[in-house]
Design a protein around this nucleic acid. Structure first.
Lengths: 346, 346
DNA sequence: GTTAGCACTCATCTAATTGGAGTGCTAATT
DNA sequence: AATTAGCACTCCAATTAGATGAGTGCTAAC
């Protein structure tokens, strides 16, 4: 589409404008471009072209007699070209300091942090959704007379615990029986597959201890689903103060609120409309689904953990974001996560 | 000390100044006080008294011909009186919406949130320090052929997991033996009590599986101590934008950084120099141990979980903080936590 | 000891002034 | 026909100059 609208010279000028604006954050004028580019043109010519570009909607003037800044459409054009062109460099990125960590939680926190310090933007990452994930192992153990600990391990070594209070102590034998029952029936199942029929059958087999089974299953479902909407880790939220266009009191406060209240981040991250085969999604300005981020750009990527279980990693920054660096970084991390998580599984 | 320095009238005036400043945030002048108080004095008289109070260091002038604002010393005087006087009202606070939660983590997050929404300041809470806490239960279970899950339960139902990779599968019997070994030897011990002698003895008894024991113990120590410095939950950090004196870009950014980087918060919270019998500690301005909080006041309280195991809950806000409300709130929560956590234990 | 009165200070607000960057247009040049 | 130089014009941003008013400190009277 761009081809019909923009000749090569306009493209060059537009790119020059955007690049310059990304660096300085100031509106860029015709004279600057006249010197900045290699096509030797006077400022007057550039002015004419810029006027055209403005008519086409790629750039705007913050006010009469100011330079031009990219519009959302302009950014979009730039980003599209960028992502299309840049697929080669990805592989040769340096290895990050992600150590193979046992706990998913610290791994994710780590990733968010690495990405934040590397890009100087705010980052977030959602834990892989557990909904279609399989149960690997269940165990009940008596902690003391009135408390039973239930441990649930999911694929990808996600571990959940819950303490269950019981009226009277369970003897060893019952415990064994219950464990056996649970493991033989539940192992390998996804959370979705645990349906009412199965539950009823389990309860029957548990006899007088059906209530415990119920509690365990409650636990499984509850811990997993309840936790799910909190499983977003953020880092570098305060980086937004590095960008004047975001750091006036009101905007900064709203943005940080959004970051603290993970709920809407979660929704954003699970949107997952993957725009292209790389799995990288870029929201520019108004394209963002979160209203407090209308003045930001968001770059997200989904990483996979085996069979369709996905999490998402994302970056939030000003619209004049260093898209190139961000996309590279995020691609690299996504790759490492994909690899790492697939290996972890047996 | 205050008695020798300040006569009753000066105290009244000082209190009036502080109260007024807490409300308005503006320097308060002699005329205001002249009307605000019941002691019928002209503004001129007040001026004289204020001049004295300034000489004594309780109030300062931001600039010539402005009203006065309390100095740190002034706040300190106010707070000391306040805490001394207010011990009665605490009991009749309303019950908060802290539900008995199984997981320590969500409980703490909840508390932080409640406190933040109630006071409109930034809050933080540290998990009870586990160092002197007792092991309640240890269990190893085979998750699959090459992975063993170790679960450690501490007093107060703090649960920790770690996946341990093993070369060759362990048979059932060994597993049982190891579990027995671990539980009989470790149960009831504090982390400090697990010394080298004990470790050596355990390893001997484990025979060829000594390495697993080592790993488990590593896990116990490591998970607990490593996690410990992260176990601070914060809430309402963005509330600082409600107070103009803290929300200029630089200060706000530094403050929020401190809040995101939990490390120094942890140190602050574990200072624990309890100033009085109520266990409530107030840092005003420069008294704060964290340099980014020189313009803030901090109120902390330690809550207890049984035998000397303590956590700390804290609030950070501007120096013109509603100390009365904050102290009341924090006392109430502290009380509820104390009660709740003691009950949870069997 | 308390108060009224008055001169003085200094932050804040508003309006007017200026400088400069940048545009749009027109006429000249290639 | 495309490019360029020149010039008038616009508008932001930074500066300056008053004007306002809250508040003090001091002195003299009560």
């Amino acid at each position: 589409m761009a081809d019909t609208e923009l000749d090569e010279r306009k493209v060059k000028i537009l790119n020059a404008i955007i690049k310059n604006y990304l660096e300085t954050g100031e509106p860029v004028g015709s004279r600057t471009i006249s010197k900045y580019t290699d096509l030797n043109l006077s400022s007057a010519t550039i002015r004419n072209e810029m006027s055209d570009l403005e008519d086409l909607g790629y750039i705007v003037q913050p006010h009469t007699s100011a330079g031009r800044i990219p519009s959302d459409k302009g950014y979009r054009f730039y980003v599209n070209n960028l992502i299309a062109a840049k697929d080669k460099e990805v592989s040769e990125m340096q290895e990050w300091m992600i150590e193979k960590t046992e706990k998913m939680e610290s791994l994710l926190k780590n990733v968010a942090k690495v990405l934040a310090t590397n890009t100087q933007y705010a980052t977030m990452i959602s834990a892989p959704s557990v909904v279609s994930n399989r149960l690997k192992f269940v165990q009940l153990s008596a902690v003391d007379e009135h408390q039973v600990l239930s441990v649930v391990v999911m694929d990808g070594n996600i571990v959940k615990n819950k303490i269950i209070n019981v009226e009277k102590p369970l003897d060893n034998e019952t415990m064994l029986k219950l464990n056996m029952l649970l493991n033989t029936n539940l192992n390998g199942l996804t959370v979705n597959q645990i349906n009412l029929a199965l539950i009823t059958r389990l309860k029957e087999q548990a006899g007088i201890h059906d209530e415990i089974i119920a509690q365990v299953l409650d636990t499984v479902a509850e811990t997993i689903t309840q936790d799910e909407d909190l499983q977003v880790y953020t880092s570098g939220a305060t980086n937004i103060f590095k960008y004047p266009e975001l750091s006036d009191s009101k905007k900064a406060s709203e943005l940080l609120d959004t970051f603290e209240e993970k709920q809407s981040l979660m929704e954003l991250l699970s949107e997952g409309g993957t725009s292209d085969e790389t799995g990288i999604q870029v929201y520019i300005g108004d394209e963002s689904p979160i209203s407090t981020m209308k003045d930001c750009s968001i770059v997200t990527a989904t990483y996979e953990l085996g069979d369709g279980v996905k999490g998402t990693i994302g970056i939030v920054g000003p619209k004049r974001m260093d898209y190139e660096n961000v996309v590279d970084n995020i691609k690299s991390l996504k790759g490492q996560l994909d690899k790492l998580l697939k290996n972890t599984e047996t």
